[in-house]
Amino acid sequence: MARGTRTNLATLAGVVGDNSPVDRPIDRVAPTNVPLSELAPNPRNPRDDLGDLKDLVSITRTQLQPALVVTRAAYLGLYPEDETTIGLARWVVINGCRRLAAAHNFGRPNLDIVVKDEIATDRETLLAAAVIENVGRRDFDVIEEAKAVELLIKECGTVEKASLKLSKSKGWISQRRSLLNLAPALQTALRNGELAVRTARSLAQVPPEAQVQAWAAEQEQREHQKPDPGPTPEPENRKLARTPVTAAKVTRTFRRMEADPVTLADALVDYLDADGLQALIQALTERH
């Protein structure tokens, strides 16, 4: 395709293909629209918190991706003790609990769903489906991720089985699990973005009682290593460090790189999380 030519939404969707993190297993199944009263959120959702739902306010107009659910019977076949928790719901939402919460929050009366009882063949598969949806999301912090991985390992019985369920290496799983060895104060700092994951993994190897002191010592050392920034310029001489990004500027950048649709799609999939990709597809649809 020639540089600078336009591509349509179908082309972009085709390029993204199996690399898209947006609920891949349910794309080829026709969705059903049901009232919210017939849906219950997954009581075994590995997330501690659904996070800020403002990014899903558009669900009042459009739901780009159906929620993945299992029937009441299939779910209770695995977790009969949860019958009171799910109430009279006909379906339990496994992937899409944030969409369900946003629908309740912003006044949408129903939700598109896809029923797939095959993911409820055993507890390991059901839990893995819930974990996979959340791993790597920007609003799913690494401590939540580590707790979810640990939960799956306990369910599967071995690290090997859990790594196969998640399609992750044993090294990745080991790195995530190590974060649970952090002192509570450092876990909080990590969740707040004050502590880098790489540093956290190193600190996790230190005895818990010495971790906070080791972090403080590392911070102090970094402060001493910082170069002298020199005198601060007068306000009237200062220039903005960053100028606003416009569509025209992004387009010029793409043209200078001679980026083709496949490269653009790969870059966007790498840069955006699942909700960001949904917002992108909606924006492209509205402009197509």
Rank of each mutant, 00 (worst) to 15 (best):
V245R: 01
G171N: 14
R90D: 15
T253K: 08
L272P: 06
D117T: 02
L78G: 05
A217H: 06
D117P: 14
A217Y: 02
L53R: 04
I153Q: 09
L182R: 10
G157E: 04
G51D: 12
E160W: 00
I119N: 11
Q221G: 11
V212D: 11
K54C: 06
S174A: 14
N192F: 01
T263H: 06
L277F: 03
R242D: 11
A130N: 06
R28Y: 03
A283Y: 05
V159Y: 01
E124A: 15
K54P: 03
T121V: 15
V250L: 12
E124W: 03
D49K: 06
G87K: 01
R24T: 13
A267S: 09
D23A: 09
T199E: 11
V262Q: 15
M1G: 15
S20L: 09
L100Q: 02
P227R: 00
S163F: 00
T11N: 09
T246F: 01
A120N: 09
V57R: 14
D82A: 08
D18T: 13
G171Q: 12
I173Y: 02
N181H: 08
P43D: 05
S37Q: 11
A189H: 09
V114Q: 07
R176M: 14
E144G: 10
A146T: 12
L127R: 01
T246A: 01
R222T: 09
I132Y: 01
Q219V: 15
L182E: 01
D228M: 06
I59L: 05
G87Q: 03
G171T: 15
W215G: 03
S167C: 11
T71E: 12
L284I: 15
N237I: 10
P109E: 02
P46Y: 02
A162T: 09
K170F: 02
W215D: 00
A247R: 14
L152Y: 01
A128Q: 05
P231W: 00
T243H: 04
R256E: 10
T62H: 08
A214M: 07
A130C: 07
L277W: 00
A267I: 04
V34H: 02
A204P: 13
N105D: 15
L203W: 10
A210F: 12
D55P: 10
A120C: 08
V114M: 10
I173F: 00
A101Q: 04
T85D: 12
R137T: 13
N95D: 15
T243L: 13
D23T: 08
R256I: 08
V93N: 02
K116M: 13
N192Q: 15
A189G: 07
S178E: 05
A89I: 00
Q278I: 11
V142D: 15
T5Y: 08
P21E: 04
V29W: 00
L9A: 11
A120G: 02
R90S: 15
D122M: 07
L268C: 11
S37H: 08
E209N: 10
E150K: 09
A265W: 03
L127P: 12
A196F: 04
V70F: 03
E236F: 01
Y79H: 10
